[in-house]
Simulated assay, not measured.
Amino acid sequence: MANRITELFNIKYPIIQAGMIWNSGWRLASASSNSGILGLIGAGSMYPEVLREHIQKCKKATDKPFGINVPMLYPNIQEVMDIIIQEGVKIVFTSAGNPKTWTSWLKEHGVTVVHVVSSVKFALKAQEAGVDAIVAEGFEAGGHNGRDETTTLALIPMVKEKIQIPLIAAGGIANGKAMLATMILGADGVQVGSRFVASEESSAHQAFKQTVVDAKEGDTQLTLKELAPVRLIKNKFYDDVQELYKTAPTPEQLKTLLGRARAKKGMFEGDLEEGELEIGQISGLIHDIKPVSKIVNDIINEFEDAKRMVSSL
């Protein structure tokens, strides 16, 4: 399935396993890369030396390409970038920040750089900054999201119309039909997040994985837009946020309620009441926890079946 994405990353299939905080450790990344797609380690939930450990373990577990997702709003960013270079990682996905800040520096060190955006405006800024590819992520996605609430169906063709570099679609993609649909709209590949949360190799807590499997349509909601918009499964913490909104809270009051390590508490430690449970709308289509290799195989088989079905129309 050779195209601009498979050639850019030297992978078999144009699929990227998203680098999600508290879900994407070395086990998930290496299993993804070994399955023919690009695995990403999520650096956002790791102290620098923990990231180094995950990189080293990933290198031992796979001889295939893998990368690091780096949310630029996190502290210790210089130390994180230095470790990536020291450990010889050649692919970095940046997000939650200005792509101009690190793109040139990374490329000077021989790194392929991809930036995650949620709008045409930021896609153009990323292209101008010199990134090698763009991930355009729609409103359906889990975790931190764009404020414009543009859905993947609308976002992908609008971004495609304006850029020349490879385009990766994200948000609401968990199977082969969605992969084909976004590629028909102009994407060169897809980034899949939520489906890999519910994998055997994900570092998420088993209770959170099961909550994702049990989720139905309408069980997630985007909130905390005054801080950093995030899509969450509705639970006690989510309800507490909505109650606070009734008082017209200040950003400081929202920060106080959010506190520290709320995402770790929910996704990594399995506190389903007080934790922050980040997942996409597509969780309503995820019904089981499977090995990464089986997930990838299912996506590719369904993609090929969908192509044949479209050809018969």
Rank of each mutant, 00 (worst) to 15 (best):
residue 264 K to T: 03
residue 275 G to C: 03
residue 269 E to M: 10
residue 258 L to M: 12
residue 88 G to W: 00
residue 291 P to H: 02
residue 53 E to R: 04
residue 308 R to I: 04
residue 69 N to G: 10
residue 20 M to E: 13
residue 250 T to I: 07
residue 183 M to K: 12
residue 219 D to I: 02
residue 72 M to Y: 12
residue 177 K to F: 08
residue 221 Q to G: 05
residue 137 E to P: 04
residue 288 D to W: 00
residue 94 T to N: 09
residue 201 E to I: 05
residue 90 K to G: 01
residue 152 T to D: 10
residue 10 N to I: 02
residue 255 K to T: 06
residue 178 A to D: 06
residue 213 V to K: 00
residue 215 A to F: 12
residue 195 R to E: 03
residue 33 S to G: 03
residue 81 M to N: 12
residue 237 F to H: 13
residue 262 R to I: 12
residue 73 L to K: 14
residue 77 I to N: 10
residue 267 M to N: 02
residue 138 G to I: 05
residue 109 H to I: 00
residue 253 Q to L: 07
residue 198 A to G: 08
residue 205 H to E: 09
residue 20 M to S: 11
residue 279 I to K: 09
residue 38 L to D: 05
residue 198 A to Q: 15
residue 203 S to A: 12
residue 213 V to Y: 05
residue 50 V to E: 14
residue 242 Q to C: 08
residue 182 T to G: 03
residue 47 Y to M: 13
residue 170 A to L: 07
residue 38 L to W: 01
residue 242 Q to Y: 06
residue 176 G to T: 01
residue 310 V to D: 00
residue 162 K to Y: 04
residue 249 P to D: 00
residue 224 L to M: 11
residue 159 V to P: 02
residue 80 V to S: 09
residue 48 P to N: 07
residue 4 R to S: 14
residue 34 N to F: 06
residue 267 M to T: 00
residue 63 D to F: 10
residue 47 Y to R: 14
residue 154 A to M: 15
residue 297 N to D: 06
residue 279 I to D: 07
residue 90 K to C: 04
residue 22 W to Y: 13
residue 37 I to M: 09
residue 169 A to W: 11
residue 96 A to N: 11
residue 306 A to Q: 10
residue 229 P to N: 05
residue 60 K to M: 13
residue 242 Q to P: 04
residue 118 S to L: 01
residue 291 P to E: 04
residue 42 G to Q: 10
residue 287 H to S: 08
residue 149 E to H: 09
residue 291 P to L: 02
residue 212 V to T: 03
residue 17 Q to P: 01
residue 70 V to F: 06
residue 81 M to R: 13
residue 65 P to A: 00
residue 174 A to Q: 01
residue 162 K to C: 10
residue 99 P to S: 06
residue 55 I to D: 08
residue 164 Q to K: 15
residue 308 R to H: 08
residue 304 E to Q: 14
residue 185 L to I: 14
residue 73 L to C: 15
residue 106 L to F: 10
residue 128 E to C: 00
residue 137 E to R: 04
residue 258 L to F: 08
residue 34 N to D: 13
residue 291 P to N: 02
residue 162 K to Q: 10
residue 301 N to A: 15
residue 161 E to C: 13
residue 175 N to D: 15
residue 255 K to I: 04
residue 254 L to S: 10
residue 116 V to A: 06
residue 99 P to Q: 04
residue 146 G to Y: 02
residue 160 K to M: 10
residue 33 S to Y: 08
residue 19 G to E: 11
residue 117 V to H: 11
residue 277 L to C: 12
residue 272 L to W: 07
residue 135 V to I: 11
residue 266 G to F: 07
residue 251 P to A: 02
residue 304 E to T: 14
residue 214 D to P: 00
residue 230 V to E: 06
residue 6 T to D: 00
residue 148 D to K: 14
residue 121 K to V: 09
residue 282 I to H: 03
